[in-house]
Simulated scan of single mutants.
Amino acid sequence: MAIAKAERLMNLALCLMNTRRPVSKRELRASIEAYHEIGSDEAFNRMFERDKDDLRELGMVIETVESLDGEIGYLARRDRNRLPEIALDAEEAAALSLAAKVWQQARFAEAASGALQKLRAAGVPFHDEGDGDEGVREQSGHSALEPRIPTPEPAFEPLMVATRERRPVAFDYRKANAVRPEPRQVEPWALECWRGHWYLAGWDRDRTAVRVFRLSRITGRVRTRGGAFTTEVPDHVDVRAAVASWAGEGATATARIRLRRDSGYPLRARAVETIPVDADWDELEIPYGHGLDAWLVEFGPDVVVLGPDELRADVVDRLRAVAKG
């Protein structure tokens, strides 16, 4: 379920449960912000009926009441929509605590912190010991690793909102082999963290093709554009698979490079074989696939391509393009 729809359903449920009298569609439309954007009465009526059906499918009991003047009102009585008391064992409490602590930055942090406070108020035990830099916490007597998903890039939050709300964006993007950034117009589909970096997958309007963007290469401000998407968003967007294909993941061929000592650790992590050459250089055999040339260029003078010849030529061409820029 899209986040925007979930928020709309939640607001509708709150309106229906926080009133002592039946509320008409007209009043609900005026009270819920998401309904303000619906232009015609016909479109609103269709959306409202779908939302009402969705809430009932989720188990909410909504009563339909006709007033004396013939107007239909809706009401969700609290006594008929009350959840049973929540009781969590130690393992479940630890799991919820870990999930709430995954997001250390961006707007999720405040919501997650509020959720933990409500659980504590309800009597669910959470114990946080030590300072915020430790990777292990004791929760209800159980030791557990504390996961973190950092979001340091300024572009993360506006792109997250644009992805959620299906809004086109524009930003300046510097490719690995480019000196200067280029303007891009993108319909954002999905964000995902892979090997410590955040990536955005979406439809590049200027290139009329699917593209993946590394957030750390976005310069300046992300600008939201008006209008709807021009392409249909796929049911499943596999950002990692797209990034992996550009990085040569899953390749059957290999390349040989010379890598300066104490550098290029991502390349070393993927090496099939590493042979010391001298005090300054090592020789590595690494998987070779589409996009490897662009990745090797990022390591600059710390990498020398030994083979195959076509990879060496591609890397040299990219370096010359940078030098000319």
Rank of each mutant, 00 (worst) to 15 (best):
V272M: 08
R268G: 09
T224G: 04
T252A: 14
D282E: 14
H236A: 10
R268A: 13
A247C: 14
A251M: 10
R260D: 01
A244S: 09
D235K: 11
G248Q: 03
D238G: 13
L259E: 04
A251P: 06
P266E: 11
A247P: 03
T274F: 07
H236V: 12
A228Y: 02
T254S: 15
V239W: 03
E283F: 00
A279T: 13
V233Q: 11
E249A: 14
T252S: 13
A255R: 01
A251S: 15
E273T: 11
E249T: 09
E232Y: 03
R256T: 08
S245E: 11
V243W: 09
G250R: 04
R225M: 03
V222A: 00
T224N: 04
D262N: 14
L259G: 02
D280A: 10
R260S: 03
D280P: 00
V239R: 04
V233A: 09
A269T: 12
D238V: 14
Y265V: 15
G226K: 02
R261H: 08
D280F: 03
R225I: 01
R270M: 07
I257S: 02
P276L: 08
P276E: 14
P276R: 15
T254R: 07
A279D: 15
A255S: 12
A271T: 13
I275V: 14
T254N: 08
R240H: 10
D280W: 02
A279L: 10
L259M: 08
D238I: 13
V239D: 04
P276D: 12
T230C: 04
V272D: 13
D262L: 11
A228N: 09
R221Q: 10
R221D: 01
L267N: 13
T254Q: 04
T230I: 06
L259P: 02
D235Y: 01
T231N: 07
D280I: 00
S245N: 07
W281D: 00
V237I: 12
E273S: 11
G248W: 03
T274L: 09
I275G: 01
R221G: 00
I275L: 12
W246G: 09
T252W: 00
R268H: 08
R261Q: 11
I275N: 04
S245H: 12
A253N: 05
D262E: 14
T230L: 08
S263C: 06
R261S: 12
V239T: 06
P234S: 06
A241V: 08
A279V: 10
G226D: 06
W246A: 14
G226E: 04
R240K: 13
S263R: 07
V243Y: 07
W246K: 09
D235Q: 10
F229W: 13
E273C: 06
G248E: 01
T231V: 15
V237R: 05
E273R: 15
A271K: 05
R256E: 06
T230A: 12
V237D: 12
P234Q: 05
L259S: 03
W246V: 10
I275W: 06
V237E: 08
T231R: 15
R260P: 01
A253F: 01
V243N: 10
A253H: 02
E232I: 09
T224M: 08
V239C: 05
R223L: 02
R270K: 12
L267Y: 12
A279P: 03
T274V: 15
R225W: 00
